[in-house]
C-alpha cells in the first residue's frame, strides 16, 4: 500500500519570553524528531496526554504553523510558502481538519450553508454549484438541508455542529482528514453517532484519517494504526491490535492500563505512574519518560533510545527491548539485580 502522507523528523520549538537581545529565554520542546507514514485508506490514531505534542503535530501537518525542521510529504510532494514548494492552497485540497471545539471553529455570522460553501467557492467552484454541494453534504452527514441550511451555529447542538464541521472539511474533497479531538466534547450517545458517520464516510469516499484523541477506547475502536506520543516524541507505534495487546513501551502500558474498566465486576490492578507528565520546557534528558518509569536504569537518563522494530510494523523506543541497542547493558544490569534479590 502506498503512503499518502509521510512525515520525516518533524521538529517544532516554541520560544517563551525574550531577553535583552531578543533571544528566547526558554524554549518549549513541543515536537521533536517525529516521523511516521500514513497509508491510503487507513486511520492513524495519535494518543498521548496534554502537552505531548499531538495537536502541534496536526497543526504542523496543516502548515497552520511552520516546522523548524523536517519534511511533510503528501504523495511525495512538499507544500509550503518556501520557494520551490507546491502552494498551500493545493495542500488544503488534499488535507482538511476538524477541531475539538465545534463552536469556535465555525464563523458565528455565517449560516451553515455559507460556512460549508465557503471552501469550494474559494477554490473556484461557482456559487450555485457550491451551494448545491453544501446541501448534498449536509444530507450526507445526516442533517436535513431543508431544516439546517439557513441556521446559524448557535442554533445547533454540539453534535449537529460537529457534523457541520465534518461536512465543511469534506467540501473540498480532501483525501486526508485530521480529526483533532473531534468527538471528545460530545456526550457518549452523540459521540457514537458521529463515530459511525466518520466510519461510513471513510468507506464511501476512501478517506484517510488522522485521529487525535486522549480517549484510548475510542482510538482503539476507530484506528488501524496507533502512535503514542510522550513529551513531543513518538514512543511507540504500530497496528492497533498489536499495540493494545502487547505494548512494548512502559509508558504505553501504563497509559492503556490507567483507563478504568468499562465492565462491572472488573475493577483492575492499576499500574499507577508517579507524578504528572513533566514540563516540555525542560524535558528530562535521555528517554523523556525515565523519571516516571519503574524500569529506568542509568542508561535511560544518559542516552535517547532509538526507535526499534518490535515485530512487523510495531516499533518502540525503549532500552528495555531486546532489539534496542542498549539491551546488553540492560540485561547485564538486570542480572546483577536478580542476583541481589534472590
Amino acid at each position: 500500500m502506498t503512503s499518502v502522507l509521510r512525515v520525516q523528523d518533524l521538529k517544532k520549538y516554541f520560544p517563551l519570553g525574550k531577553d535583552l537581545f531578543g533571544r528566547p529565554t526558554q524554549v518549549v520542546h513541543a515536537v521533536e524528531s517525529v516521523s511516521f507514514d500514513v497509508k491510503k485508506g487507513r486511520t492513524l490514531g495519535i494518543v498521548g496526554e496534554s502537552g505531548c505534542g499531538k495537536s502541534t503535530t496536526a497543526r504542523l501537518l496543516m502548515h497552520l504553523i511552520e516546522p523548524d525542521e523536517g519534511r511533510i510529504l503528501i504523495h511525495g510532494k512538499e507544500y509550503g510558502q518556501i520557494g520551490g514548494r507546491h502552494p498551500l492552497s493545493e495542500l488544503r485540497k488534499q488535507m482538511q481538519m476538524v477541531f475539538q471545539d465545534s463552536y469556535a471553529s465555525l464563523n458565528p455570522r455565517l449560516t451553515i450553508e455559507d460556512s460549508i460553501a465557503f471552501g469550494p467557492r474559494i477554490h473556484g467552484v461557482k456559487e450555485v454549484q457550491a451551494r448545491q454541494m453544501a446541501r448534498d453534504l449536509l444530507e450526507r452527514v445526516g442533517l436535513n438541508p431543508g431544516v439546517f441550511i439557513r441556521r446559524y451555529p448557535h442554533e445547533l447542538s454540539g453534535g449537529q455542529r460537529q457534523r457541520v464541521n465534518i461536512a465543511r472539511a469534506l467540501a473540498i474533497q480532501p483525501e486526508i482528514v485530521i480529526l483533532d479531538e473531534a468527538v471528545s466534547a460530545l456526550d457518549k450517545s452523540v459521540q457514537a453517532q458521529v463515530l459511525n458517520l466518520l466510519a461510513d464516510l471513510k468507506k464511501e469516499l476512501g478517506l484517510t484519517y488522522l485521529f487525535i484523541s486522549h480517549d484510548l477506547n475510542v482510538v482503539q475502536y476507530i484506528s488501524d494504526d496507533v502512535m503514542v506520543m510522550y513529551l513531543g516524541q513518538v514512543v511507540e507505534s504500530g497496528p492497533v491490535e498489536q499495540l493494545y495487546r502487547q505494548s512494548a513501551h512502559p509508558y504505553t502500558r501504563a497509559l492503556l492500563n490507567s483507563v478504568p474498566a468499562q465492565t462491572p465486576g472488573t475493577r483492575k490492578d492499576y499500574i499507577v505512574l508517579e507524578g504528572d507528565p513533566p514540563n516540555p520546557i525542560a524535558p528530562p534528558s535521555g528517554c523523556r519518560f525515565h523519571p516516571r518509569c519503574e524500569f529506568a536504569r542509568a542508561i535511560c537518563s544518559e542516552k535517547t533510545p532509538d526507535t526499534v522494530r518490535v515485530e512487523g510494523e510495531h516499533r518502540a523506543a525503549c532500552f528495555r527491548l531486546p532489539q534496542s541497542a542498549g539491551h546488553q547493558h540492560y540485561i547485564a544490569l538486570q542480572e546483577v539485580q536478580d542476583d541481589t534479590t534472590h
Binding site: 447542538s157 453534535g159 449537529q160 456526550d187 457518549k188 450517545s189 452523540v190 459521540q191 457514537a192 453517532q193 463515530l195 459511525n196 466510519a199 461510513d200 480517549d215 477506547n217 475510542v218 482503539q220 475502536y221 476507530i222 492497533v240 493494545y244 468499562q262 465492565t263
Partner: peptide, 25 residues
Amino acid sequence: QGLLAATVHPGMDRHQPLPAIPGSP
C-alpha cells in the same frame, strides 16, 4: 441500556457500527 451500548469499550468489534442512540436529549 443505550448509553452503555453506545459507549466505546475495549473488545468491541471494530468493523461493526456502534449502536448509537438516535436524536439528542
